[in-house]
Amino acid sequence: MSLLIEKPGLLTTIQDGGRFGHQKEGIIVSGAMDRMAMRIANLLVGNHEQAAVIEAVAPGPTVRFRKDAVIAITGADLSPTIAGESVLMGRPVLVRQGSLLEFGAPRSGCYTYVAVAGSFELPQVLGSHSTYLKAGIGGLHGRALQAGDILTPGKAAAGNGFRDKMFRSPASDTSGCVPARWTPDPRLCPVYQEQPTLRAVRGPEYDLLSENSKQYLWTEKYQITRQADRMGLQLQGAPLAMVLPEELISCAVTFGTIQVPHQGSPIVLMADHQTTGGYPRIAQVITADLPILAQAGPGTILRFAEVTLPEAQQHYLQQEQNLEILKRGIELKRLFS
């Protein structure tokens, strides 16, 4: 017994790196909306980078720590506080027994992540902890967290190692938490933007777009409507016209696929996307920019910028290299601090 959910918040779920290997059976991947924020939060507390974390949106949950724990909060800034004091994000934090973690006004982004050292003692379903709400599987009992739920951290040696070495504070200090004195170089992490430009490559059905629509796609502004959730983001803007073939044949779609249904307004598919779809896949947001897209909420105005596949791959590899540097840095902190 260690973490008690006192208030559940609007939509608080357990997510990990995703449920892979079952899309051929129609079982969606799910997983964290902002994979980088999830991975970084895990690394900061000494977990495996794909371990299960808490994902929350505003209004966020209220969590009572019944034992000391090392946590890290990343992703959206929902004004987190511990024992009433605002708490630094993006670094390990020792939370003292009895303290309350709360969230306030959203300051940036949509999805916030709380990783706890040792992750959680929960059963995997089909190889993953991710909550798949519609099928009622994964996470805690296949549903969003509720008031009264208890999450038990797993036993992780690395996390415990963190606790001893990284947090120095005088014995007289009785505050609810002790943040580590270091944080990763911000240049290694994605930067969320208020009016993001998302880089995208052409999709398999790009050439069905009319010439005008091709131009609109790369030059016009699009706004995220209220129809925005873990499945996808409905956009509003210059309608995209297409020369449709006789028959649209269902095929695989993925995280970041931009589809255009009949009414001409694009939809970008997100973490809970269906495995296959029949609408034309006109473009694909590059993997490196998916965290920025995930953190863009309803009302956000965005643009798409075309890049080539080699460029997209370069950004992907750069992001992975940054994460390697971050991992090494944290490991050094763990060994020598």
């Binding site: 290997g21 899309q23 051929k24 095929c251 993925t254 791959q313 992907y316 590899l317 992975e320 390697e324």
Partner: peptide, 28 residues
């Protein structure tokens, strides 16, 4: 990572970091 067969296609998902041997080759 995984494959998804459909009516006329097989879509193969891969991890670009791993298939490129940590960025040494072009993943695609």
């Amino acid at each position: 990572v995984e494959l998804v067969p459909a009516f006329r296609t097989v879509t193969v998902y891969y991890n670009p970091w791993q298939v490129s041997q940590r960025g040494q080759h072009d993943p695609y």
